[in-house]
Computed example of a mutant assay.
Amino acid sequence: MQNDVMTAKTTVDAPADAVFAVLADPASHAAIDGTGWVRESLDGAMLTAQGQIFRVAMYHDNLPDGHYEMANKVVAFDPPHVIAWEPGQDNGEEIEFGGWIWRYDLTPLDRSRTAVTLTYDWSAVPAYLREHIAFPPFGQDHLDNSLGHLAALAQLSRSGPPAP
């Protein structure tokens, strides 16, 4: 039996609302990403509901010109506890989802600290995609780095910008 789920956990020195706000802003996803593949939000809208689609520009060296777009569907949205999305690609007629999900579970520990679990689940990826993409396409360090970046952003947003 193959384990098709990878998780990472951390404690963030920020309230759950602040952590969730960073995750619900696709403009922050490039700064959170531990691989450097996510480039920028293409919609400019905050995530507000399950079923919402948000698009991001991406880059990967293994592609002919490197650039591509992902259309992500929010599959869980329960502020400030859970947010998750399933990446897909728009073929011009519909969005084809690949079967992998990014999920963040937030547990308030007290008023100023939040336990965060990041889960990358590729259990629903069909066999034909697994023939072309090795899963997971990155190591555990990607999730660990992403949580470190998230913690830094949430702590910064909580304390505000540095004084001049």
Rank of each mutant, 00 (worst) to 15 (best):
T35Q: 07
A163I: 12
F138D: 01
L118N: 01
M46S: 12
L147P: 08
A152V: 14
L106I: 10
V116Q: 03
A30N: 14
H67Q: 04
W100L: 01
V22G: 07
P64C: 04
D90L: 15
R158G: 05
S159W: 03
A115Y: 13
L109T: 10
P137K: 11
T10Y: 13
V116K: 02
D61F: 12
D17P: 01
P79S: 08
D90C: 14
R113P: 04
Q2S: 11
S112P: 00
T7E: 13
H132R: 00
D141V: 08
P79G: 08
L63F: 07
L147I: 13
T48V: 04
H29W: 14
Q89M: 11
T35I: 05
W37K: 10
Y128N: 08
V56T: 07
G160I: 08
D17E: 15
E86M: 12
P79M: 15
H149W: 04
N91Q: 07
G98T: 13
S123F: 10
G99P: 01
N72D: 10
Q2M: 15
T107Q: 06
R113H: 10
M70S: 15
F135C: 03
V19A: 07
N62W: 13
A24D: 05
L147N: 06
H149Q: 06
D43T: 06
D33N: 12
I95D: 10
Q155T: 09
L150Y: 05
H81P: 04
D17F: 06
A49Y: 13
A163S: 12
F20R: 03
P79R: 12
A16E: 04
W85N: 06
N3W: 09
A115R: 05
G88R: 00
A21Q: 10
L106C: 09
L42W: 11
E40V: 04
R103Y: 00
P162T: 13
A21C: 12
M70I: 11
Y59A: 11
D121I: 01
A24I: 06
N91L: 09
T119C: 14
Y128S: 12
G160D: 02
P162F: 13
L129M: 15
T117E: 10
W102M: 05
A127S: 15
T114A: 11
I53H: 11
A49V: 06
G44F: 01
A151N: 02
L150G: 08
F138L: 02
I101Y: 05
T7N: 10
A76R: 12
